[in-house]
Design a protein around this nucleic acid. Structure first.
Lengths: 114, 114
DNA sequence: TGCACCAGTTACGTCAACTGCACTAACGGG
DNA sequence: CCCGTTAGTGCAGTTGACGTAACTGGTGCA
């Protein structure tokens, strides 16, 4: 039973880690600098605490970011990208550039009236 | 009711189009050149005809690729990226580079024995 | 005594992407 | 007459990312 689940292709590997819509957006926010849990939640309108926690924990376990909890009341937790996490910047930049350059028609569900 | 569903951020827009794991991989294959339906299916082990059709049709409707059906028997259909589709190459390249450079530990589910 | 605060956690349900299998049309070759 | 070929389609079912609602813990403030 070798690790069949690890594809050779770099693109496929990347996609293993960035499944849902939020995974990538969390990295995008963290590229702006270290952020607290609540700051991330505000920066990502619509995300649930559940999802945010899950993704954050996943990325921490994979070495993309660090979690620093300060033993204070009320608690304060700061998330910060590691070097590996920061190395995602070119990918995000490329996505951003494409998303900005592509015509709106590439994103609308169909010939969407009004 | 304006188009609320179209985010400003380029990254978020990109993610609107590339939801599932296959969407991106189909583009990756098409970057190698025009391909027939069957060629794509072989190049993407595990994909179902259903999924392939759906993604292809979506991308066609969004202007990322063209679908050319030759009125032959047996039928032959060729898919080819448009300029817009080809402009995704930098994004895919960045993903590939990251996926290749990142340590395996970033992809394994946990401290995976054996 | 009780509420607010932050950063979660737990239980449950939803939704869309995806899968497998069976099936189709139309024709050439045996 | 039947088989094989290509590019799908339809139906049923599964998976996993995600959402909502309720709740926790320890302290400051009223």
């Amino acid at each position: 039973m070798v690790d069949v689940d690890l594809p050779d292709c770099g693109v496929a590997r990347f996609l293993l880690l960035f499944d849902g819509p939020w995974a990538t957006l969390i990295i995008r926010e963290l590229l702006h600098g270290p952020q607290r849990f609540g700051e991330l939640r505000e920066a990502l309108p619509g995300i649930s605490a559940h999802t945010l926690t899950n993704r954050l924990r996943l990325f921490e376990s994979r070495g993309l970011l660090t979690r620093t909890a300060f033993p204070e009341i009320p608690p304060r937790v700061v998330y910060e990208l590691t070097d590996l996490g920061r190395s995602l910047r070119p990918v995000l930049d490329a996505m951003y550039a494409w998303g900005k350059a592509a015509p709106v028609s590439a994103f609308v569900p169909a010939s969407d009236p009004a």
